[in-house]
Design a binder for these strands. Structure first.
Lengths: 210, 210
DNA sequence: CCAAACTAACTGATTAGTCAGTTTTTTAAA
DNA sequence: TTTAAAAAACTGACTAATCAGTTAGTTTGG
């Protein structure tokens, strides 16, 4: 559970009013997320985004310095959706096994709901520059830390029989498996509904942990 | 183990001599694979590739119709490296558990050796058009089928105690985990050497299967 | 000698980001 | 409340640069 703390990447603006920045950026994000997930980041022009957001290109570039800033905002927005859903599912008063299963279920369900956006987010992370990518990956680490803590609870209470170095791997696996549901959606749905997928994954996890 | 057979995507050429095509394309691939993994596909210009390959742009475009063709050739080339290494490791005369572990080890080792290229390959798959991507994903399926067969052997001989629908997932997991070693290399090497990673993954796999 | 392979210079289309000027909103003095 | 001035937000035409792919003509090797 590495807790490296670095400061967040900040998207610059030349508009003073923070409320206005928030509102306008939400408009930009809403427009961009849709077009990006249809055509991809590179194939989308800044004019298209501005138009879809109902504002002028010049205006848009006052709320954002570069096209890449828009991508960063979009990725963070999508990531927040997932984070919120996961944290909402976490309950304190259940057994470690129930708790981690509940978390996994919530994660898989939210990823299923916004799978297009999840694909976009991970696909285009590579188009972010070093700083923005580092900042984004930190968010990713928050999610994994959360899952690691849940698994650790099970070890501490003697229910989970796994080695200490597996904790990180298993937490990471759960994250990756949720992403894979999004990425391999079309080939997986031949074999599984999301419910069946969650059930099978839950079983495998229980086998592994106990 | 879905066996959908579709024809391979063919990269067109206007050069007649097949030997020459093979030789020149190898030069293009060698040049492109290096530049792509340094700067990414989009940031690389066709002129750069041609220059690094020691040929004229015009010449290059006689061995290839579009820039995307180069990416496709590069992805296939990298994939072949992995496929060869995996098939070379497969032995018939060992127990199912030993066999799948041997396969997994070979896979993780080759991915470790060419991890930059693996990252490139999966990162840029999205930049291929529908046809080329479909063709590439078929190669991916070959790898998974191979692993599925190995797992199936263990089930059939009664050694592996897992449900039938887990076979696909576990085969896929092994593939994904090898890719994740490449993608998360820099954060994983804080915690694991490749040998340690393979050992821990082997243990987890054994727990899961038996 | 001639077909195959190669070259250099070119083109046509694209696009992220800018900037000089306009409109709207806020502030504050009368 | 009116008004004037200052600040903030917005506009859209513009540009400077880039780059995938072409082609008319030249060289090479069998």
């Amino acid at each position: 559970m590495s807790e490296t703390q670095t400061e967040e990447y900040i998207v610059a603006t030349s508009v003073k009013n923070p409320k206005r920045v928030e509102k306008r950026r939400a408009e930009i994000i809403d427009a961009a997320v849709k077009i990006f997930s249809e055509k991809g980041y590179h194939a989308t022009t800044t004019k298209e985004i501005a138009e879809a957001a109902g504002m002028n290109v010049g205006t848009m570039f006052q709320y954002v310095k570069t096209k890449q800033d828009i991508l960063y905002l979009v990725c963070c927005h999508i990531h927040s959706l997932i984070e919120k859903a996961l944290y909402a599912a976490t309950s304190e008063n259940s057994t470690p096994l129930e708790a981690i299963k509940k978390d996994m279920t919530a994660l898989f369900e939210i990823v299923d709901q916004v799978s297009d956006y999840v694909v976009l987010m991970y696909q285009e992370t590579a188009s972010l520059d070093k700083e923005a990518r580092r900042s984004f990956l930190q968010r990713e680490q928050r999610l994994r830390n959360h899952l690691e803590k849940q698994i650790q609870r099970g070890i501490d209470s003697g229910v989970f029989k796994i080695s200490q170095e597996s904790v990180f791997l298993i937490a990471d696996d759960i994250l990756v498996q949720s992403q894979m549901w999004a990425f391999r959606r079309w080939s997986l749905t031949n074999k599984f509904t999301i419910e069946k997928y969650i059930a099978t994954r839950s079983e495998l996890l229980e086998t592994l942990l106990t």
